[in-house]
């Protein structure tokens, strides 16, 4: 039976988590301090936009994603006696854990920024950013796997990836522009509200993240070369 979790997958994911545990812990402490600081400044009306440290958290998390690929660990684990399917799933899960780290930090930020509205405004913001992060993560994995796919012409790969990233970056900028709604066009405000303030919009992002993750997984297990 094809399981989604087994001992081998857990061993691989665990290694990935613990490998970056120190960096995560350091990041966690630093950003928590920063978010409390910014949260306090926002509450006191000294600083209006709490999104800057959030953006920083996301940027650092993405830098962490890249280390996995740059360190050629794909090649390292490829020779282990585990199935291609287990390797593919472990890879997706391990990258998902980076998002969990980012969300943990963001959750603390929300506690600091919206202590009174944590279960309303705070929860919505949390779910919205989680969707955006998972989407970005899935797009990141897909970018590597699509680029490594030898069956697609380079032009097609470049075009598809450009389209995906334009869409995701636009979603990201909309998220950041929400606090400044008065300066946005009517169309952008409608889209931003749908994507980040309605259950269907948030669900749509999660669905899109899952589709991209599945595509990434499929491309990975059908790769012709694992030398990266």
């Amino acid at each position: 039976m094809k399981t989604l979790v087994n001992a081998n997958i857990w061993r691989l994911v665990k290694a990935e988590i613990f490998y970056n545990l120190f960096v995560h812990a350091l990041l966690f402490l630093t950003l928590t301090f920063m978010f409390y600081l910014f949260g306090g400044l926002v509450r006191d009306g000294i600083y209006q936009d709490p999104s800057l440290p959030h953006l920083l958290a996301v940027a650092i998390m993405y830098l962490l994603f890249t280390t996995r690929f740059l360190e050629k660990r794909t090649r390292y684990i490829q020779t282990l006696p585990v199935t291609q399917r287990e390797l593919g799933l472990a890879r997706i899960y391990a990258q998902g854990f980076y998002c969990v780290g980012a969300l943990l930090i963001y959750g603390i930020s929300l506690m600091a920024s919206f202590p009174a509205d944590l279960l309303t405004e705070g929860l919505w913001r949390f779910l919205a950013l989680a969707a955006l992060l998972l989407l970005g993560n899935a797009a990141f994995c897909l970018s590597f796997d699509m680029w490594a796919a030898s069956s697609l012409p380079t032009f097609i790969k470049a075009l598809l990836l450009a389209l995906i990233w334009i869409l995701i970056l636009r979603l990201g900028t909309l998220y950041l522009e929400i606090p400044f709604a008065e300066g946005m066009s009517r169309g952008d405000v409608t889209t931003a509200i749908f994507i980040y303030k309605t259950p269907w919009g948030v669900m749509l992002q999660y669905l899109f993240a899952i589709v991209l993750s599945v595509m990434s997984y499929k491309l990975y297990i059908h790769r012709q070369s694992f030398l990266t």
Binding site: R75, Q78, R223, S225, F226, L227
Partner: peptide
């Protein structure tokens, strides 16, 4: 690489 499965 073919023998070890690193390359198909």
């Amino acid at each position: 690489h073919c023998l070890t499965g690193l390359v198909k």
